[in-house]
């Protein structure tokens, strides 16, 4: 499986799309989000940040826009806003590819959690400015806390199941080009 995917990024891209669809599907299941229940982690965000941190070339911007915009529309969020935030956050990471390659996992985890928190704050600020009703802050912060906790799990699973990792120094792909 690993060899299959190493040849081109399309294997991983397809995998990401499948995972996104699966996560969306799981959230749509009519298993009842009872009102007042505490929200779980935003796995989609964890997955995106973890993958962009490892292999930014696997997740082109247009794909992220398509996936998150579809999620916005189907999950009844204001369309476009969360997508724009995700694009900005991933671009922030993409511009620092050289840096994130060097980070050890603890710092990377801190960076990802900080990004999630910043995204939440900006999201809620925009809600405030446009006078949209929004859930209480503590309620939304619980989701970020869960996402931060889920981040290492997502990274670990990506590593174990899909062999997704940061390229080592001097590693080359199948055509002998440097990564």
């Amino acid at each position: 499986m690993t060899r299959l995917f190493q040849t081109d990024p399309w294997g991983y891209r397809g995998l990401f799309l499948v995972l996104a669809l699966l996560l969306l599907f799981l959230r749509l299941l009519p298993l009842g989000n009872a009102a007042g229940a505490l929200p779980g982690p935003d796995l989609m965000l964890c997955l995106t940040l973890a993958w962009v941190m490892r292999r930014p070339d696997f997740l082109p911007v247009w794909m992220l826009v398509a996936v998150f915009l579809a999620e916005d529309l189907i999950l009844m969020r204001p369309p476009g806003l969360w997508t724009a935030l995700v694009v900005v956050a991933t671009e922030f990471l993409r511009a620092r590819t050289a840096l994130t390659r060097e980070l050890n996992f603890l710092v990377e985890w801190l960076l990802a959690s900080g990004l999630m928190l910043a995204m939440l704050l900006v999201y809620r600020t925009v809600f405030l400015v446009t006078l949209l009703p929004q859930p209480p802050f503590g309620f939304a912060a619980v989701q970020v806390a869960w996402s931060a906790l889920a981040y290492p799990v997502v990274v670990g699973l990506s590593r174990l199941a899909f062999d997704l990792r940061k390229p080592a120094t001097g590693e080359i792909d199948d055509q002998g080009r440097r990564l």
């Binding site: 959230r27 749509l28 299941l29 298993l31 989000n33 505490l38 999950l75 009844m76 859930p135 939304a140």
Partner: peptide, 14 residues
Amino acid sequence: VVMADSGSPFRQSV
């Protein structure tokens, strides 16, 4: 028949 719910703890709809 209820097919799906909103999928978000912040939106209560089916």
